[in-house]
Design a protein around this nucleic acid. Structure first.
Lengths: 264, 264
DNA sequence: CGTGGATTTGAGCGTAATCAACGCAGGTGG
DNA sequence: CCACCTGCGTTGATTACGCTCAAATCCACG
């Protein structure tokens, strides 16, 4: 399990050096010149809420697209903060390193979601981001983005809103970790994934989890065995069918009942 | 205990109506015309990192100071987002309401810290803020602040950094809730309070907690009895002396050892 | 085909939750 | 002034949920 071993196996993959080099010089050299206004994710991602002049202005943003292989890190805890990353495809996990070598997962990011906002605070990334499957991202130079934001109050507002959304998201996670039991946590997690899949045009009731039981457990504050057991319990209650990473929710209202015993 | 009863006893205090009225009209009418550049909190608060022209520009910001009595809410979950609040004196708690009437504490705010940033995401506050003692705040109209930010990249950057700091703060709290036991949690909490007291010119080793055992427990994801027991355990280990809300840390390194068993 | 990683399941245990009782301080009213 | 009440904190006894340790299975991959 990658979380126990101190080797950089999954967090850096075989081609770590190449990846680092790519990060350093590849930013301007991408063949694809990407435009936000024509991106199929524009309603989920950075441009969300913008239109007309402001959206066009966003096209002035120069950024590179980059592929990230499964297991590769987009950035590591402590790396200098330079880019905001937008996920184009694939799934990422954000993690903090614990002193004892274990990792704490602080979030999962899907297409259209932003990564790296935690780096603003201190100019260094406070967490690491690792691809859970082959992925593609846009690397947006923060300096450039904030220049652009200075010319558009709307864009500025959008960025602030996205950061605020992150704060709110973490609030609910705190609620989850602070006051829910294992079943409620996993139900909340699955319902959240379900919603996000739906928002991306995928089925809300049937999907592949990209993360391992251990990663789900770390995120939800429980051990992998408990995650597995809770999946089995849900299956036995006929709330869902589960086969490893494949999940089919068969009783959405039931799952919601399991969840909102507590939550507003 | 206020968290169990559905009555608005502590969260709204006897003069709730007055407070609401005050909030609606009192914003412009404050006698004190406050300036950030001369505020004794300028190194902790919004102006942190600004100087020269940018700091002067911040003085263009029109905002009201307001007193908030113990138990009064600055805003409630669901209230329209209009202001960012800066704590001038006193302590606040931020809370989410759970469906069953209980509350989840998501943070404690002291002098120089900002409140209300979670409201940007949806234009409505996602949490409530309640004074734990008589307090004074600056209510900064967000619309006005963002206007001003449009004229200064530096100010813009400061605001983003403050939001990012909030995200990072919540990351560590997630780590705490996700992977620490009762002793580690309380130790982390006390060390954090200690640091923040120190940064405000108070003693780092001796202070009054403004929050109840139940509120600490809610924040740390444990029951009030466990908080109490853990305090007693620390006292027995001669790490600190405790008498109700008064705490004196007698072995700071020892407390840190109790804490950083896990954390980086 | 063998190996290693991921998942599931079981058994026993430990930590923190629950339930309960008590002490103390502050406020209220007779 | 004292009896009473209420809120908060502490402590004890018991319980339960999730953790730990362990073993078996499944699957991908070399």
């Amino acid at each position: 399990m990658q979380t126990a071993t101190p080797t950089p196996a999954t967090t850096a993959a075989p081609i770590r050096f190449f990846e680092r080099a790519q990060r350093a010089v590849g930013d301007e050299s991408a063949a694809t010149r990407a435009l936000c206004s024509t991106c199929h994710l524009k309603d989920l991602c950075l441009p969300c809420g913008l239109n007309g002049v402001d959206l066009e202005r966003l096209d002035g943003l120069k950024f590179a697209r980059r592929r990230v292989k499964e297991g590769q890190a987009l950035y590591h805890e402590g790396d200098r903060f330079q880019f905001i990353y937008a996920v184009r495809s694939g799934t990422f996990k954000s993690t903090l390193n614990l002193r004892d070598g274990r990792e704490q997962v602080t979030g999962f990011q899907m297409a259209g979601e932003l990564l790296g906002l935690d780096g603003l605070a201190a100019g260094k990334h406070a967490s690491s981001a690792v691809a859970l499957e082959d992925a593609e991202i846009c690397a947006i130079p923060y300096a450039h983005l904030s220049e652009l934001a200075a010319t558009s109050a709307e864009l500025q507002h959008v960025i602030s809103r996205l950061m605020s959304r992150e704060i709110v998201r973490e609030h609910s996670l705190m609620m989850l970790l602070g006051s829910m039991n294992a079943e409620e946590r996993l139900a909340a997690f699955l319902l959240n994934i379900s919603q996000r899949m739906k928002a991306r045009g995928y089925s809300a009731s049937e999907f592949h989890l990209r993360m391992s039981r251990a990663e789900i457990g770390s995120y939800l504050g429980m051990k992998l065995e408990t995650v597995s057991r809770t999946f089995s319990a849900f299956a036995q209650q006929r709330l869902l069918e589960v086969d490893k990473k494949h999940v089919r929710i068969t009783d959405l209202p039931g799952l919601q009942r399991a969840f909102d015993l507590r939550v507003q």
